[in-house]
Amino acid sequence: MASEPSAATSPSDSTNHGLRVVVVWLVLSAIATPLVAIYVGPLIPPGNATVQGQGQTFDNQVMTAFVTPILCLLAVFFAYGLIQFHVRRNEAILDGPPIRNDSQIQLLWIVITTVMVLFLAGFGTYELLQDGSGGGQGPNPIALPAHHQDAFQVQVIAQQWQFTYRYPSLGGLESNQLYLPANTTVALHVTSLDAIHSFWAYELGVKADANPGVDNVAYVETKGPTTFHVRCAELCGLWHPYMFNNGRVVDSAQFQAWASQQQRVYASIKPFMNKPESEGGAPYAKTYFPEPDRRAG
């Protein structure tokens, strides 16, 4: 005659499982949190090439440190449950006692999650308002970095399927190369000629939508010389995947040399650039609207 199956845990089991889970969780969190914050957080892009990128990297460190204890709790809870409460051979499957109307647990849950969410909201808002965090802020930015009034202006014009860069302080120089001077506050005026694009220079920590008719300003404070990639981050048509190029942050002398070289290359179209559009010159404005009626053919 077979013996009666026994329950996985006896009702008379006096083991304090909750205390065990909490102790293991605290120990694991105390070890994992600093390790993750120090070694994992900084590995998440964009890196430290700009002040804004550095700020985002710091945010990543804070966020990974913040989320690590939560992940640890889930992992410990899950692992402990699997080890302690799994059904063994010849054991009956018995449900545990229901937990109902435990106001302490409910209150604790509401307080903890509310504090966490409010902290993250406050932290994110504070970080965003420091310098804009490299995001597009529309035509009237409110999160201004230091020295923003002296920012070097660059217009980023997206179109299907390339980016064009204009430098108003260099006589309206226009190029398909994005060069920026090192250790400089740069105001990127992002717009589009046609569809909705997104200017994403991720090593710089910059991402801004490019919409026709909108001057979307994003600030970035460059540091030392570096190279970076620019991609369109908005699905924009047939050759969206080809819409990328590389840029460089160079020291002042190299930047001047590059600007002079570009001005020589494009000297032959300068006469057209200097005339207003009403007199047959090339259009140059902070925003553009597509003009479907302009074409005769």
Binding site: G237, P290, E291, R295
Partner: peptide, 23 residues
């Protein structure tokens, strides 16, 4: 890839549809 950068698709919204989007 090669392409035309002038919005020359007459009759399409903003001149960028149809033949501008079709190999």
């Amino acid at each position: 890839r090669w392409q035309c950068f002038v919005p020359c698709a007459a009759g399409w919204v903003y001149g960028f549809g149809g033949p501008m989007q079709t190999i």
